[in-house]
């Protein structure tokens, strides 16, 4: 089962390597990791998606909490999850296929962000599953490059995870 964990960390050098070192050292397999600064500029927030049983997640939370630079760790309950991921995807597009791809983009709510004579680059921001779907749909158009940011997430409702 996939779990989404939000981690507030001190925003200074070396913290990311402490966290990633912990994953490899303790044998945690991470699906994705996204980091960015928060409303408090001294704090960064990581969203970690991890596949595993409840033992794995409990251990991961506890080991993360031991890192001195980690301020707070929360697993977001599945039902309260608001998650998004951004993907850029470049595929071949010639006169004949361009309109087909445009159709797909329209249905999938993806934007065209670059266009050349032979290629087209799409941008989509959606649930990770929807990104997978778009990638699948574009497969037959010879995908050149895919770049995904990893999932970011907040908890639904009024509750907030912050330093206070």
């Amino acid at each position: 089962m996939k779990h989404t964990i939000s981690v507030l960390v001190e925003n200074h050098a070396g913290v990311l390597s402490r966290i990633t070192g912990l994953f490899s050292r303790r044998g945690f397999n991470i699906d994705s990791l996204a980091v960015g600064v928060t409303e408090d500029k001294t704090v960064s927030r990581m969203t970690i998606v991890v596949e595993g049983d409840s033992y794995t997640v409990e251990q991961l939370e506890k080991q993360l909490n031991k890192v001195v630079d980690v301020i707070k760790v929360r697993t977001i309950p599945q039902q309260d999850l608001i998650s998004r991921e951004l993907m850029l995807i470049k595929c071949n597009a010639t006169g004949r296929t361009r309109s087909e791809i445009l159709d797909i983009a329209k249905i999938m709510n993806a934007n065209i962000v670059d266009l050349t004579k032979n290629t087209m680059t799409l941008e989509i921001c959606d649930l990770p599953d929807r990104l997978d779907l778009l990638e699948e749909l574009l497969k037959s158009y010879n995908i050149q490059e895919v770049m995904r940011t990893g999932t970011i997430a907040l908890q639904r409702g009024g509750a907030a995870i912050n330093v206070k």
Partner: peptide, 8 residues
Amino acid sequence: IDPAEIRK
């Protein structure tokens, strides 16, 4: 004292 040791 270390929560991470419990159930490890």
